[in-house]
């Protein structure tokens, strides 16, 4: 082991520096490209309305203030109430979608990974193909369907929609994880006296928890960020989720850029934190299936 690392270091030590340096310069460029817009968002969000609207701009806020955040998070004023309501709605919809999605996806993914039944391939591709269809295509028929089901302006309409559109991906991700659990473990369990169901619950489920976590993150972030359906299905202010609500916020306070930047910052916090904490699973989920040895 030490031998191997040593020799690989020895190889890289004899450098073609040009490659390395161009790589570094490129990374610095990418870093600036990625981070500067976010930095400017945060800087703007701690400016007063007056300070933001200046030309040339204040590169650094002369009088930094947290007032924009305070206003959004204070339930005693109407802006705060509205914002917190959107926040809660988003959270409720995303969490429910995630939980139900996992419950439905787990058995389906397991079946796709393990069984060879007629039509299995066809089913699987139809599941996969769903990934290809644009949300807008489904918008109108689904809107009519939701109206017929009496779900317009309810969170149920969003949860049902997100579930469907999240499921193909969830199933695909989880299938990848199940594929990596040797089938011999279940066979051993069945010989040891377990039924097929017991083998699944007692042996396979605990081993697939990383997959379930990964799938959950994906599904949560997807639901949290979704805009098109929420924009079309929800017209009542009290049921709106954050991406839609923020737009309303923006039109009401047409020129309040610092407020808007504070709101987008707050909206991004949960997903970014979730991502940073569970990064390992997220990355694995993203690449699962697409990369094979």
């Amino acid at each position: 082991m030490t031998d191997a690392t040593f020799s690989s270091r020895a190889i890289t030590k004899r450098p073609i520096d040009w490659w390395r340096w161009s790589g570094r310069v490129f990374l610095v460029f990418l870093l600036l490209f990625t981070v500067l817009p976010m930095v400017w968002m945060v800087l703007t969000s701690i400016k007063t309305q007056f300070a933001a609207m200046q030309y040339p701009p204040q590169w650094w806020p002369a009088e930094p203030t947290l007032q924009n955040y305070a206003r959004l998070l204070d339930p005693s004023n109407s802006v705060g109430q509205e914002f917190l309501r959107y926040f809660w709605n988003s959270f409720y919809v995303a969490l429910t979608t995630t939980v139900i999605g996992v419950v439905v996806a787990v058995p389906a993914a397991y079946a796709f990974s393990r069984f060879r039944f007629p039509g299995r391939t066809f089913l699987f591709f139809s599941v996969l193909l769903r990934n290809m269809f644009p949300a807008v295509v489904f918008l109108m028929p689904l809107f009519l369907l939701m109206r017929w089901l009496g779900l317009v302006n309810t969170h149920g309409s969003l949860i049902l929609t997100y579930l469907t559109f999240g499921l193909p991906l969830s199933i695909w991700l989880l299938k990848g994880f199940y594929d990596n659990i040797p089938i011999q473990l279940e066979q051993a369990a069945r010989i040891d006296g377990a039924t097929r169901f017991q083998a699944f619950i007692l042996i396979v489920m605990p081993l697939s928890s990383p997959g379930i976590i990964a799938t959950s993150i994906f599904s949560f972030i997807g639901a949290w960020n979704e805009y098109v359906y929420a924009y079309t299905f929800l017209s009542k202010q009290e049921s709106m989720t954050l991406p839609v609500g923020i737009q309303r916020f923006f039109t009401e306070f047409a020129t309040d850029w610092p407020g808007l930047m504070a709101a987008t910052f707050l909206m991004s916090v949960p997903v970014v934190v979730l991502f940073l904490v569970l990064q390992k699973y997220f990355v694995r989920a993203l690449t699962e299936g697409a990369v094979k040895n």
Binding site: L185, R190, I191, D192, L207
Partner: peptide, 20 residues
């Protein structure tokens, strides 16, 4: 009969020990 009812035991090539 299900495997569990056949009164057999099996040793697998990869051992199939429950990792958790």
């Amino acid at each position: 009969l299900d495997p569990k009812d056949r009164d057999i035991a099996m040793v697998f090539q990869n051992y199939a020990l429950y990792p958790n």
